[in-house]
Design a protein around this nucleic acid. Structure first.
Lengths: 123, 123, 123, 123
DNA sequence: GTGGTCTAGACCACT
DNA sequence: GTGGTCTAGACCACA
């Protein structure tokens, strides 16, 4: 899978990397049990620091997307404890909704944006 | 309006403040044309530094929520240029959707969370 | 002449006032020897502080647009020492030109904007 | 490039710095993609505070002259969306023209000053 | 009294 | 080592 990092973005590199990998899992590019590239290999490939890749992998582990195996490195292993996640999505979405309300973006428009994202990536 | 800052949060103080004020606008606690407290007054009230409040107000201005009136300080003035905002919401929501897909949270569940947020705050 | 002040502008009120009066002189709304309204009267009319009007008049005096007469207040009296002024315009225009060059705005486009301004106000 | 700050000037330090850097871009001293010195390095060099340099860089970013790259600091990246800029030049030049008209400086003389500035810096 | 500017010094996240 | 954030305290321009 092609990882694309935007060095001009405001978003931290490790977060961009994290999100790209999550996108890879979502689009079935990475499958349960697949091993991600080694920290060193991925860092070289993208042209970023090893520590940055390391941080991305750590965050993915904390958020329940990979498990770290001593021999195989980071392995896709998605934790699907839904209850907890729903709370998390609530917290992430609430400030977005507040902004939407201020800017006169309707509930329906937010739904549509979400649907459009699902469509664009064929989820 | 009661501003609540969590000093233990990872989120920057000025961003928490920004979001609280956006919440206040969304819930109609602050109305178009209302003046926010002066930077010094709000800083004293919350117990944070003047410059931190200043930064929050600056960001709110850049994001089109307030204007700075030389006589009255920061005044609520929401810029409702929708076209641009929709792009922004797309960018914010895309990674959320990726996570949802990974975690087996359906499109309908995301819609419901958004609706619940609207309901909770009576938007 | 109608003085229009934009309280939401970033520009200081006294500078807006100064510029409006200069516009009035340029458009022949104010003529050499005319007296400007008293500080108090103009302040009341516009709804701003007396000190602000006072500051505007002081700046106009320093820049050679009015003379202050004890009995008649501020009186239009334009100082036309061209040599000095040309230097001033150089200093004001230089940073504008630098920005133009950076932004790929050509010499001709700057000329045209200036011509358009002359046209718009029938100078 | 030599940055020259006038500590006696009325102009804010961060604005002087901003303008000097814009001059540097206009004169091709800084090229697209070049990294500016780090805030600390430049602050030390000029003998001003880090935060003042930071503010200058922030303004340059807002005005579309640099982007902040997480690894390289501030990098020259000029945004050349002309349409918007032309409005801005209109607003900046209008009061200059008003002054010119008052001071009997002709349209042609303004053009000439602009041309002279272009010539002096070999634009 | 208001925000704007500047300085100084500190800690942290990111690379 | 870089910028980002936060604090503290000061002076000034503006209203």
């Amino acid at each position: 899978m092609l990882i694309e990092i935007d060095f001009n973005s405001d978003e931290a590199l490790y977060l961009q990397l994290r999100n790209q990998i999550i996108l890879g899992i979502a689009t079935n590019t990475y499958h349960e049990g697949d091993a991600l590239p080694s920290v060193r290999a991925l860092a070289d490939e993208i042209g970023i620091n090893m520590h940055t890749v390391n941080k991305a992998y750590s965050v993915l582990r904390e958020d329940g997307y990979v498990k770290v195996d001593r021999r195989r490195g980071a392995v896709i292993a998605v934790d699907r404890e839904k209850k907890e996640h729903l709370n998390r999505f609530w917290e992430v979405l609430a400030p977005v909704v507040f902004e939407a309300v201020c800017k006169d973006v309707s509930k329906q428009e937010l739904h549509k944006i979400i649907d459009d994202i699902y469509d664009k990536y064929n989820f």
